[in-house]
Design a binder for these strands. Structure first.
Lengths: 138, 138
DNA sequence: CCGCTTTAGATGCATTTGCATGTTTATTTA
DNA sequence: TAAATAAACATGCAAATGCATCTAAAGCGG
């Protein structure tokens, strides 16, 4: 019953659901003049980390490409959304901290993002998209 | 019980699971000298469509950007993975068809892709990642 | 049949990505 | 502890992306 084909069916619905929600949310954010979701994700993690985070930690968590992320962080710093101090006790690294502007932007983006999450997940439930996943669970 | 916070928790695990599987599969594919997964997706849809598909259909299904997809198709055609005939009965459009080379490549990629799907979904089950989704289901 | 609007797809151009590599600092090993 | 190796970011460059726009073919109202 829990053969490979069910795992693949689960993957397909999982992927479709995530793509649908992600695309809609991004379109809505861009249409409203906000940055994209990978910026949001960084702001959110930094907001939850009072002592800041090292770029390396975020790269690994989000599986970002190191060099792309390095430049993304630079752009976010230029926009005043975060700061880069040199890391205490490690002369190679940086410590990233969110700014008030970053916190404020994240909150505004969340209003839009959340709406699409709620709609998209509800929609997926209704269409039974998660059934294969649920079945895998028992 | 089925409040908004559970939907958001479902979204987070959904997204993490898909990112993990996707990234690992892509890395493995690139490391093995194969194209990325958005090429795979196109090959797969074309393989299941004996009469071919219009680019517009694929764009909408995958929520690809139109211009990016137009060029992706051009690259795939250059590589001999698909053909572009002018569409019967519509002078504006094209009909995309997979080639034998495309079919063969898709099958090879599937060997790698499938492994990561199975491992990733199994891993997500074990860690209880789908519990929030399951709970939303009743 | 003729403009007017819409649709399918391509393309110019600026931005972003990702691989490879560079630079600096930390860590390990001989 | 000096030399070799590894780790954390940054950067050069070629390729990919995405927005705006273009072209050509349908579709449509008169």
């Amino acid at each position: 019953m829990s053969g490979f084909e069910e795992r693949e069916a689960a993957w397909i619905t999982l992927n479709q659901t995530r793509t649908r929600i992600f695309s809609r949310a991004e379109r809505a954010l861009v249409a409203a003049g906000y940055p994209r979701l990978h910026w949001y994700d960084v702001l959110w993690e930094l907001e939850r980390a009072p002592d800041g985070l090292r770029p390396k930690q975020l790269e690994q968590q989000f599986l970002f490409d190191q060099s792309s992320f390095s430049r993304q962080v630079a752009r976010m710093a230029e926009d005043g959304l975060l700061t880069r101090h040199s890391a205490a006790g490690d002369g190679r690294g940086k410590t990233l901290r969110i700014t008030d502007k970053g916190r404020s932007l994240r909150r505004q983006m969340w209003g839009i993002y959340r709406k699409h999450i709620d709609e998209g997940i509800a929609e997926a439930q209704k269409s039974g998209a998660f059934a294969p996943i649920t079945r895998l669970d028992d």
